[in-house]
Design a binder for these strands. Structure first.
Lengths: 241, 241
DNA sequence: CCATTTCTATATCGATCGATACAGAAAGAC
DNA sequence: GTCTTTCTGTATCGATCGATATAGAAATGG
């Protein structure tokens, strides 16, 4: 009832190495908030919002229900924070090289190839597919549904912005339909999420990406020369090191 | 407990125009089983399995809970039947022209363009996107999850079979990677489901399909000559008629 | 008619849902 | 030390979950 009365994040305990070193007066939090949030994120990612219960979460996070509510406020607020954590933890893996690319072709190639790596869990241990993409069912008019739709819209906007810039700079032939091309690329990446969920390998997704790049008509995109900064060219997966 | 004791479908009432006209002895069912199943299908389709409660279902189907359980057995069994109804009602819309196509290119074109129409609800009134594709989150090891995964696998197998035949008949250049191409097409269609859920129009999905068909790759696929049997060539949507 | 069979409507069942009250424990402030 | 503040663990809360027991209603078979 009086949800707004409780602070969602009191003072921050001792676990966070960044931000506020201030320690409140009372008993310090006994668990690592960031680690617990990461656990919750993986659980939501794997099962979806509805299918994940508070009991599942508290068990996976290793804390009691009151601690969860004191630290995160509610299940919905926890999911929102999980989306934020997901973004902070994996955004760079997909969009990092995209942003730094010199040409559109390189940008699109990095977007698709890096997606193939991330979506199959080849870079670190996490559930398969994209958390935002796979949550597209349900939540029609709820707040969470709107948030997820907005997150998917950002992908489209980024692609459109990059393609639009390329068009303005003459990198793409005049008259190229930016919106359609962006939607095509997003569709391919979304489909890759579902393929990954169904067990497709990184190499298989990279093959999909290569075909998509060939069909895209973007100059310099189909060129399959790996970036020197890419630790693994296109083989199944790098050694666990 | 004694789930197996009750008949999931006793004698079939009078609603079914096909099959068994036999009428059992007792009081006849007061509701249209097929219509109720269609309502349930739409609800599951729209919200997903977990987010749809029995109360939601009974309200949408216009029946009481005991009638639902007497006619369908359980929520899970109802969902399974809903998947069957979904298949029976919409499979032909997506795969009909694909099967009848003379060439691979025509088959793939029909598959993608007809998908664009169906997924945006342009042919009849139903939720947006593919029920099977959008249900890819959760249900990791459950029976329903396995059933859904199998349904998605069928799509891949169909595409691979058609492409493989084309390869054997020389319609595709020797050495063409069938699996990758099939996975690419499935990814594009899966992505179109999510785009449709997020509000993309039929014309927008058709633009995506055209890019996917591209200029190279499958011969005769990019040729954008509509089939004469197609009631709506490629414009936003046909008049409601 | 009556007996049998099957469906429908009310009123739940135990289990679990998300979310808390409460009391004790562990820290800083004094 | 004592007081204050905050977190943790137990034991729930009312609501809703999927699923039924029961009794009455509506059909057929005799």
């Amino acid at each position: 009832m009086y949800r707004a009365m409780q602070k969602s994040e009191p003072r921050s305990g001792q676990g966070a190495a960044a931000g506020e070193p201030v320690r409140g007066r009372g008993r310090p939090r006994a668990f690592d908030r960031a680690a617990a949030l990461a656990r919750a994120t993986h659980l939501f990612w794997e099962r979806g919002y509805e299918a994940t219960s508070i009991a599942d979460l508290t068990e996976a996070m290793g804390i009691g229900a009151p601690s969860l509510y004191a630290a995160f406020g509610s299940k919905e607020a926890l999911y929102t924070e999980a989306l934020g954590h997901y973004h902070d933890a994996y955004e760079a893996s997909v969009w990092g090289r995209f942003r730094g690319a010199a040409t559109v072709g390189e940008a699109v190639r990095c977007y698709l190839m890096d997606s193939a790596a991330v979506l199959t869990g080849s870079l670190s241990d996490h559930p398969l597919g994209c958390m935002v993409t796979l949550a597209s069912v349900g939540g029609g008019r709820s707040d969470l549904g709107a948030r997820l739709r907005a997150a998917r819209a950002v992908t489209l906007e980024r692609l459109e912005a990059r393609l639009g810039r390329a068009l303005a700079e003459g990198e793409l032939p005049a008259g190229t339909e930016i919106g359609g091309l962006a939607r095509f690329l997003q569709a391919v990446q979304s489909g890759m999420s579902i393929l990954a969920r169904d067990g497709a390998s990184r190499a298989e997704l990279e093959a999909v990406a290569r075909i998509a790049m060939g069909q895209s008509g973007i100059p310099g995109c189909a060129a399959d020369r790996p970036d020197p900064s890419d630790p693994s060219p296109g083989s199944p997966a790098p050694p666990p090191a």
